[in-house]
Amino acid sequence: MVLKKLIRNPISLIGLIILLGFILVAILAPVIAPLPEDVLARNPNADPYRIPRYGFASTPTPPSKEHPMGLTEGQLDIFYGIVWGTRTAFKVGLTVISISCLIGIIIGSVSAYIGGKFDEIVMRFVDIFMSFPFLIAAIVITTILGRGLENVMLAMILFRWTGYARLIRGNVLQVKQDEYVMAARAAGVSHIVILIRHILPNTIFPVIIQASMNMGSIVVTAASLSFLGLGAPEGYADWGQMISYARNWILGAPGNPLAYWYTVVYPGLAIILFVLSWNLIGDAFRDIMDPKLQG
């Protein structure tokens, strides 16, 4: 039903096709970009998320037949990094979104449903979380817990759920005044069932739309943290990391500003397309999820 409408809408169709491409790349990563044989020969259990290295020269190598997108400084294969980085992007995006969404929905809806002083206290708590500048908070957390993708995800979850909690709280406050909630209470339905059957189905869609829009920005945030050196470890297949390898080469060589274009364009393109696809789908979701438009 929903899928049919997503396909019929040209804008979301584009988003869907791009996203489908990324999903395919993520699934087929071992086929598209297998670990080179010499790495496997040395260590059959080598971590495929480690980008293979083809030398130690500090200047990037332009695209060639063996390395279609070139090599970064330190001679890491860009094509390999982007293919396996797709998996990282999905892993980070889906984990952060689903967990922070779940926390936000539970806390926000229960707080609004109970209301009164309880709601007041919970929302001030949310305010406290929201008052931290996210990047600084993330830096503090990774400093305490150490560098790593998991810690970056934890930091993002810790500071993302508040947005969803606020969003759903506002919706629940509105819906809980509706007469059908009153009618359910008059029927003797328990509070937990009212929340799950009556309130959440009528409040959750804006949150889901928000979440699908955020998928892209989560990946950008993860990339920027990796760019700052907080995220994935050295040599890990991650788009943000790929761009951070391009940091010294973005301006090109003297007299030739485009000399090292491949170091930044390919990973940048991957991030842009990923974010774009989620935003296009999120936009289309918003129209589709309106029950009044359901046939």
Binding site: D178, E179, Y180, M182, A183, A184, A186, A187, G188, V189, S190, V193, R197, H198, P201, N202, P291
Partner: peptide, 27 residues
């Protein structure tokens, strides 16, 4: 039991009619 004022807001828009009517029974 109770009959409500506004028939546009007293029925949950995401529930089928049979589930709306059966709800007090289930509860």
């Amino acid at each position: 039991q109770m009959i409500f004022q506004d028939p546009y807001s007293s029925l949950n828009p995401r529930m089928r009619v049979r589930d709306i009517i059966a709800e007090p029974l289930a509860a």
